[in-house]
């Protein structure tokens, strides 16, 4: 177990793994996305209240979920990098940020477009919406902080502290609809007991969430590789990599 851990933490090994897994992750993500989009747009019946507008759920919920889980992955990677002084972990954290930020933008934008016809407003300073906006600023702040350092090692450490502190916002976003009165409705899937979505509407959603995770992993592979190359300036193993791919 530990041997594998240390092996994975070595940049050449991680670089090769990322290159090998990326096409598999990407293609399975694309196939699942097509299937679940078909399930969500065609097979699922319209909702009893929201009619066809509820179909926005199939892109809104996965991006919102990913906007949080990517941040957790980023913070954990940053924490590992900080504690064990593993450069690769910092590279993973740095690679997560832009992807997570885009998921957050997508969640906010699709949520806004969904809110207009259903709630009657594009934006409200509701606890869920506000905390998700803060989530976006955390990502942007992390990236801005990193880019303000010329020295990678200092950027890694400062960024890691911000990433770890910011993880406090994740449970706030998640439980905002439970803790406070809000315009946004409560959780449908991630609660105790049966999900409150009928099964022909539920399976495309769960499948789409899986597809988004695979997509994230695929994009992460590319970003981690780029990040490794940016850091390992003089390593001898780069010659073979550069010659190969």
């Amino acid at each position: 177990m530990w041997l594998w851990f240390y092996k994975l933490a070595s940049p050449p090994y991680a670089y090769a793994i990322a290159a090998r897994w990326r096409p598999w992750l990407l293609w399975s993500a694309l196939i699942l996305m097509v299937i679940s989009a078909y399930g969500g747009l065609v097979l699922a019946p319209p909702d009893y209240q929201q009619k066809d507008a509820f179909r926005i759920m199939y892109v809104h919920v996965p991006s919102a979920t990913l906007s949080l889980s990517v941040y957790v992955i980023m913070a954990v990677a940053a924490g590992i990098g900080l504690i064990w002084r593993i450069k690769l972990a910092h590279a993973v954290a740095a690679a997560c940020a832009p992807i997570g930020a885009w998921f957050t933008v997508l969640a906010l934008a699709t949520g806004s477009i969904w809110g207009r016809p259903m709630w009657g407003t594009w934006w409200e300073w509701d606890p869920r919406l506000t905390s998700e906006l803060i989530q976006l600023f955390l990502y942007l702040g992390y990236m801005a902080l990193r880019s303000s350092f010329d020295d990678t090692q200092r950027a890694d450490r400062a960024g890691a502290i911000l990433a770890i502190v910011g993880v406090v916002n994740v449970p706030i976003v998640k439980y905002s609809v439970v803790w406070w009165n809000s315009l946004h409705q409560g959780p449908s899937i991630s609660k105790l007991g049966a999900p409150s979505i009928a099964s022909p509407m539920l399976w495309p959603l769960l499948l789409m969430m899986l597809a988004f995770m695979l997509y994230f992993a695929a994009v992460l592979c590319d970003r981690v590789r780029a990040e490794i190359l940016r850091r390992e300036r003089n390593a001898s193993w780069l010659a073979s990599v550069a010659a190969g791919t």
Binding site: A37, L41, P46, K51, D52, A53, R55, I56, V59, H60, S63, W102, V105, L106, A109, T110, I113, W114, R116, P117, Y215
Partner: peptide
């Protein structure tokens, strides 16, 4: 989309573009 075409398709379009 039952009259919600603009909303539904703009969401899916936006998702496609961003991804």
């Amino acid at each position: 989309m039952g009259g919600y075409a603009g909303y539904v398709w703009s969401c899916y379009g936006l998702t496609l573009v961003i991804l």
